[in-house]
Amino acid sequence: MKILAIDDQLLILMSLEKRLIELGYEVKTADSGEKGIDIFKTFLPDLVIVDINMPGLSGLDVVKHIRLEEKSKTPIVVMSGNTDEKIIVDGFDLGIDDYMKKPVSLSEVAARVKRIIGTPAESNTGAKSEGQMLQQYCVGVVIPCYNEEERLSGEAFKNFVYNNLGYHLCFVNDGSTDSTLEVLEELRKGNENKISVYNCEKNGGKAEAVRQGMLHLAKDPQLDYIGYLDADLSTDFRDFDDLVKTMETSDFKIVSGSRMSRMGANITKESARKIISMTINLIIRSILKMPFNDTQCGAKIMDKELVELVFQKKFITRWLFDVEIFMRMRKHYGKEKVQSMICEQPLKRWIHADGSKLSMKDSIQIVGQLAKIAIHYK
């Protein structure tokens, strides 16, 4: 039994291909509608799975070609994040056999495929896919690392990319002097399509590490959103995914985590650090002249189109690049517009991790760096 899968997002396509092959199907893939049609003519599949929103030839264009030009009755399943009722109805009018809305689990995809074309004689029934989800959008996450060999939770990262198939994690080794690079390369083994390592030979500070990682991921055409997250996972992956979901269902261009203490949230900080953070935030608000509660939370996600604007030039500080991001956006878009582009979303969980690279001395120096930012972006 042969299946042709067509999707412009390779993270989704490769995960789907792997699962279908495990089930015993013969699979060919295409990352564009044009390539999909060419393969269809020679491969003669028993089933076509196609995404709708592809550049160039759309999924519905592919369906039209198969039904009208090829005059084929080959079963077609659309798998897409597009929930426009008219497009879905148009698909069925053209003769599709099923419509799956992303996010969708690989288990559900497998069940629908088996219902339409049956189960192969030789199937790997031992292969499991419970909990694995094909996301609506593809997301790149930069994780800066400096001497993190003792704090990196390899299993947590592996489990996340296993279950969330639209994510790509890019670890940036910021000139570590310990075995961080070796730990990252080991973490990448077996997950090369979902995890990458960007190595900076010299330590440039967190701001430069994030900047390099963001510019690197922005070159990947399949990614819709790009963000960054601290290596110690003080921000829970579930919270980060919630930031992404807000991006998916809104017109915001940046969704930033906020470590606000409130009922129902598990937010812990050291007392001294909490007082210093509150003081620094007051200064930052006076500089930005925008009502942010927590610019320095290390969890943010943004539309890829913003990356070049805010990350192309080097930051003037090593730690306060978040403030500089907002200052650059304010300078480009104006204060009124930029406030409608940014959402500050409270986290449900945030735990201060031991071994923080930011010392009390650094906290004092931050005040001087904020003055430098205020003058530079005036």
Rank of each mutant, 00 (worst) to 15 (best):
N53R: 14
I49W: 11
I49L: 15
V338M: 15
V78A: 05
I195K: 06
I342F: 10
R330F: 13
E149K: 13
H332W: 10
L320K: 00
I325M: 11
K73S: 09
V172Y: 06
D241C: 07
S271V: 13
K304L: 00
F40Y: 12
I275K: 14
I117C: 01
G175S: 13
I280W: 06
A265Y: 06
G257A: 13
G298P: 11
M360G: 03
R285Y: 02
K300I: 05
G131N: 13
V255H: 02
V50R: 12
H376P: 00
S256I: 06
R330V: 15
D98G: 00
E69G: 00
P55V: 05
S32T: 14
T119S: 11
L47D: 00
K41L: 11
L243I: 03
F315Q: 00
L47V: 01
M133E: 08
R285N: 07
F92E: 09
L106D: 04
Y377I: 04
A30M: 13
F171T: 04
G368I: 10
R67G: 00
S129H: 11
K335I: 15
G24T: 07
G56P: 02
N82C: 14
R262Y: 08
M1G: 03
R67P: 00
L282E: 13
F92H: 08
D322F: 02
T119C: 07
T317I: 05
T180N: 07
I283A: 11
M79G: 00
T119E: 11
L184F: 05
L47I: 02
F92S: 01
K202Q: 15
L288C: 09
E344G: 03
Q9G: 07
A353Y: 10
K202W: 13
S277A: 14
S179Q: 13
S15T: 08
I316W: 01
G213I: 04
S256Q: 08
V323W: 01
Q9W: 01
F237P: 14
M247W: 04
L309M: 06
E208G: 01
V50M: 12
S72P: 01
K189G: 10
Y225W: 03
E208S: 06
Y99D: 05
I52W: 11
M133L: 12
I96Y: 03
N124D: 15
V142K: 00
R188S: 08
I254T: 03
K206L: 14
M329S: 04
H168Q: 06
T249D: 09
F157H: 13
D303E: 05
L23M: 10
V307D: 02
D241Y: 12
G126I: 13
N281Q: 13
F160T: 12
Q312L: 07
M290Y: 10
